[in-house]
């Protein structure tokens, strides 16, 4: 059963309230919500529909680059570019989905195909002069901050990403408890049986993939405004797609808010590690979280979020 994620929602709101006290805390909060939202969206396709995308960075990159290009080249407001970014991402997702689903690519094959699409985008953008090649693009500051979305303070960013996250959670909850969610999960568990029971699998797979892509494109657009800099490595790299998988596995793919939990554990933890150990010992925090990932995938396949849930069932 899909319950309303009340506790996660309250915790996130409380987290925002607490973070308004401190600039650094707000930064951690924004990053947690940003990656949490992207991972929740990824998991709608991967965890609930069985579409194990390894190329979601493509859609994040589309969001980030569309905004960055509109702002730097034409001086347009991110608000204008945002719908365009989502549109492009959704159209790309539909095109990739139609190709892959028509040819019956599943499981690993779908993962590798999406990975290939995102890698092509990575290399093409790295070569495109008008997108700043591999050096990336800097978003200029100035103008009315509510139009250019370039704030000095951090809290407006926190507020914005909070809204995006809550909207994603509420939309995800509403979809999962309705017909759509049941159809997605039936496709994940057995496509042929689902189709024999009246599920139009092609359409519902496309819907899941495109919705997921659209949400991460919003996150990508937000990233461009927040960091005020985009380059292929940070918004189009494979590492980004893999991170979404890592958060989801650690938090639990069977839960709507599981990926958010994963992000809420790993992002503050790696910030803390960075403070304690210092930047000199580069790689230590990734070693720790890779070990955690392997351990959880082997011994707690449902993720950390399932710990409480499992006890309640038995």
């Amino acid at each position: 059963m899909i319950r309303f994620p009340l506790i996660p929602v309250l915790l996130v709101v409380a987290g925002f309230a607490a973070a308004t006290q401190d600039r650094y805390l707000m930064d951690v909060f924004v990053l947690t919500c940003l990656y949490g939202t992207m991972a929740v969206a990824w998991n709608l396709a991967a965890g609930f529909t069985g579409l194990l995308s390894l190329g979601h960075s493509l859609f994040i990159g589309i969001g980030a680059y569309t905004v960055a290009y509109g702002v730097t080249a034409h001086g347009l407001s991110p608000w204008v570019m945002l719908p365009l970014a989502v549109l492009i991402a959704v159209v790309c997702a539909l095109a990739i989905g139609v190709l892959c689903f028509r040819y019956g690519l599943k499981g690993y094959y779908f993962g590798i195909a999406t990975l290939a699409f995102s890698e092509i985008a990575f290399f093409l953008v790295s070569a495109a002069v008008w997108l700043g090649r591999s050096d990336g693009m800097m978003l200029p500051a100035g103008g009315d901050p509510w139009i250019s979305l370039q704030f000095r303070a951090k809290w407006p960013y926190g507020l914005m990403i909070l809204v995006v996250l809550l909207a994603t959670l509420i939309a995800g909850w509403a979809l999962l408890r309705a017909k759509t969610g049941y159809y997605w999960r039936s496709i994940r568990d057995n496509e042929e049986a689902a189709e024999a029971l009246g599920v139009p699998i092609f359409g519902f797979k496309l819907f899941s993939f495109a919705l997921s892509a659209g949400i991460v494109a919003v996150c990508g657009a937000f990233y461009a405004c927040y960091v005020a800099f985009v380059d292929p490595r940070s918004v189009l790299g494979v590492e980004l797609s893999i991170q979404l998988l890592v958060f989801s596995i650690i938090g639990g793919m069977g839960l709507l808010w599981g990926p958010l939990l994963g992000a809420a554990i790993l992002i503050p933890a790696s910030e803390l590690l960075r403070i304690w150990i210092g930047a000199s010992f580069y790689g230590v925090n990734i070693v720790l979280y890779a070990s955690l990932l392997i351990g959880l995938a082997l011994f707690l396949p449902q993720g950390l979020g399932a710990l409480r849930w499992r006890r309640r069932v038995s």
Binding site: K179, R185, L197, G198
Partner: peptide, 30 residues
């Protein structure tokens, strides 16, 4: 409607949820 010789349950769902997927073919609302 058909059944399969090699059973194909939705293993990640309860029995009720399995049947509910099928019932959505006739009822749009949960």
């Amino acid at each position: 409607a058909r059944t399969f010789q090699i059973v194909r349950p939705f293993r990640g769902m309860s029995v009720l949820e399995n049947v509910k997927v099928a019932a959505f073919a006739r009822h749009d609302r949960g």
